[in-house]
Design a protein around this nucleic acid. Structure first.
Lengths: 245, 245
DNA sequence: GCAACTTTGTTCCTGGGTTCACAAGACCCT
DNA sequence: AGGGTCTTGTGAACCCAGGAACAAAGTTGC
């Protein structure tokens, strides 16, 4: 299984470079492929077929091939993909070859968990600053960093050249923090607060909502376990009664 | 704004009940609507138009109306939706009217953050048990609960009638924990470990992946901030063409 | 009761994403 | 060199979601 594969190199594919049109759905899957590739590297595998890689990433193989084809023509027909080469290409495409300093705002339970999360550091993301509005927290050491006060937010963002901000504050504070981050020059925001944030057009925004995920699970769980899908006439009447007050 | 609205009740709409065909995309938005409705209740609003509700949920009003129409015909033309009534209907549809005991496995930083997360309790989810494999942790108090050892996992799931499990363990332990949860009778799993989990067909599975979200942000951030998007000769020609055009 | 107005529920259309299926290409063996 | 085998990359069909636009239905004012 360790046959030598001809590794295609940049010069050989001059006009297959990212045509700038990578679909959003594809972008969302690239990290999955990276993770699967990392696992293959650890196992010492150096060539992988779309079928195998798709299997370990949990997607359809045709979808994988199409996704990769959006990035370029990395791969050798009849053989598969060179694991290390493909990994490097995807990493570059996603932007993981550079260093991304990140500020985390809100050092509660979640903020501390995020600060300590190994998955960030391992992917080129570097927690550069921790900020909280609570004076009792500032000065405290978390994950090897000193928690700074929110008053210094703008200065920190500028001095540390931070482009990515993580919001882990209570919902009520989130929009204000968001505004300040944007004003300070942050152009990408990851929001953990359970609230809708407004940002200018050109600022990237994604949200992670823990309770929403649970609710989606509950929806399906409800109709799996014999839930009373249809209300009885009695229940309906009772409900209507309650509403009418 | 407090005019009395006629509330439609079940009996009046016998054949518009959930026909069991709510699109997945709609299900994912129902929690958003619930949140927006809760905010309206707090503000004392009791009638809302699709336009207003859509605004506060951050979606298109046509989409909102279509989503709601999948649940039934809860609204009054020319008036809008009764806030409390609609909220109850969606809550019921999602399954939030019942109590959902949840077990969290893996009481590290993230697990503790989840155990303390207020958003769970407020939505009908009740953290019923905390489990960890580390003997140093078992017996410790977290969020008002005593951490139990993994050995007792099956017993706890059975005794507490737990249907939903949250995995917050390291990646290597996740699949094993998952298997044990499923074997113990859990039918919905929320996975925070950065790994692909395999579950039987009939078990619900969702994942929250912190580093993936950051990577997606980084992708867009990279091409916003002057990324070295090397144009090929072909692309350059095309672009020049477009400019001249 | 009737006309003007408001807002829902739905129809139609468009576009993106997923999947199948296969042609194009690369390797291997004789 | 040439057939056989493998796997990629892609063309085409299908499905689902989003959005505009409108008819249906209810409300308000006279």
């Amino acid at each position: 299984m360790t046959r030598r594969t001809r590794v295609p190199h940049e010069a050989a594919h001059p006009d297959t470079t990212p045509i700038r049109g990578v679909p959003e759905a594809t972008v969302a899957r690239l990290p999955l492929y990276l993770r699967a590739l990392a696992a293959l590297v650890d196992r010492g595998v150096d060539t992988v077929s779309s079928e195998e890689l798709a299997e370990s990433a949990g997607v359809n193989s045709a979808k994988l091939r199409k996704d990769l084809s959006h990035l370029g023509s990395y791969g050798t027909r009849g053989v598969g993909y060179d694991v290390n080469y493909l990994r490097r290409q995807i990493s570059r495409e996603v932007g993981l070859t550079q260093d991304w300093p990140v500020v985390i705002v809100g050092i509660g339970n979640l903020g501390q968990a995020l600060a300590n999360y190994a998955g960030f550091a391992s992917r080129g993301f570097r927690v550069a600053a921790l900020v909280d509005a609570d004076p009792a927290l500032t000065g405290k050491q978390v994950a090897g960093l000193t928690v700074q006060h929110t008053d210094d937010l703008e200065r920190l963002v500028a001095q540390l050249s931070i482009a990515i901000g993580v919001i882990a504050t209570p919902a009520v504070a989130a929009q204000q923090v968001c505004d300040r981050l944007v004003a300070a020059g942050v152009t990408s925001i990851l929001n953990f607060a359970p609230t809708l944030l407004h940002v200018p057009e050109q600022v990237g925004l994604r949200k992670v909502d823990l309770s929403i995920e649970l609710q989606i699970l509950a929806y399906h769980e409800q109709r799996r376990s014999g839930a009373p899908l249809a209300l009885t006439a009695e229940q309906a009447a009772e409900l209507a009664q309650a509403v009418r007050g």
